[in-house]
Write a protein that binds this DNA or RNA. Structure first.
Lengths: 143, 143
DNA sequence: TGTGAAATTCCGGTATG
DNA sequence: CATACCGGAATTTCACA
């Protein structure tokens, strides 16, 4: 992971469909060498995945919120984790060191779906003792 | 944005470097049609960017935290926003409807960098009256 | 759908540490 | 000896009508 790798990553972050020859022109390295470096960055796990950034409004995720979750007992964690992973509304879920145990970032089409998610999907999980929801008004920066 | 578009997006989310002919084989649609649909998804802004998912440990972002920020006066918002956008430690920044005004997701190499960021970069901004930091222990799900 | 242009991959050869 | 680079040839893919 040297300076050239960093340059390649920066270019691919802007457009992961850039061809090796496009990159080759930008950083003055032969096409096969560029391709080889990309392959190695994948092998080493530095690049985990080539993916997309989608427009949230276009895909029914117009409303975002942070939902903090408190869990009562550790024995219920598995069913909580299963629900989270399977839910298409949950974009992120992090285990926290603080008052609350988990922080979810959720994206839903509208406020009624959010209500549904919190009062049905979440509250019905055994062990969820308390949740706190904060609506996101707008986003200044995102990845 | 029909069912076929959704299929194409799903494939590209898994690997955005997939060629049109690869996709063509998966969804039984001609290569030019696939290419045309991808182009239109970009034009319409449904696909905002083709990008990467990087391994955080490999790129010096081993430690993540949520930092909530309270702003005193609205006249200082511009310098706050400028600092946030320029900072390489801030992955996300959202305007909130709640007690705190902004929520930042930050990623740093270590705890001392986090301390530095909060006590220097953030607290020195005019108008930042209060912050609250919660460390992320582990991540169950992320995009 | 078919054709020319461009990109990818594989290979052999070379330089460097 | 291992690693990384380059240039050329065969195959695949792309973009156009």
């Amino acid at each position: 992971m040297d300076h050239i790798d960093s340059q390649i990553i920066e270019l691919l972050q802007q457009n992961s469909r850039m061809t090796s020859s496009d990159i080759s022109k930008c950083i003055h390295l032969s096409v096969p060498s560029v391709a080889e470096r990309i392959r190695k960055l994948e092998d080493k796990g530095i690049i985990e995945r080539f993916t997309l950034k989608l427009n949230r409004n276009a895909i029914g995720q117009a409303l975002m919120a942070y939902v903090s979750v408190m869990l009562e007992r550790t024995e219920n964690i598995d069913s909580f984790r299963a629900t989270i992973i399977q839910s298409r509304y949950v974009l992120e879920c992090h285990h926290l060191a603080g008052e609350y145990d988990y922080m979810l970032k959720v994206a839903v089409p509208d406020i009624s779906t959010l209500e549904q998610f919190i009062s049905v999907s979440l509250k019905n999980i055994q062990g969820v003792s308390k949740t706190n929801t904060v609506i996101i008004l707008s986003t200044l920066k995102e990845e």
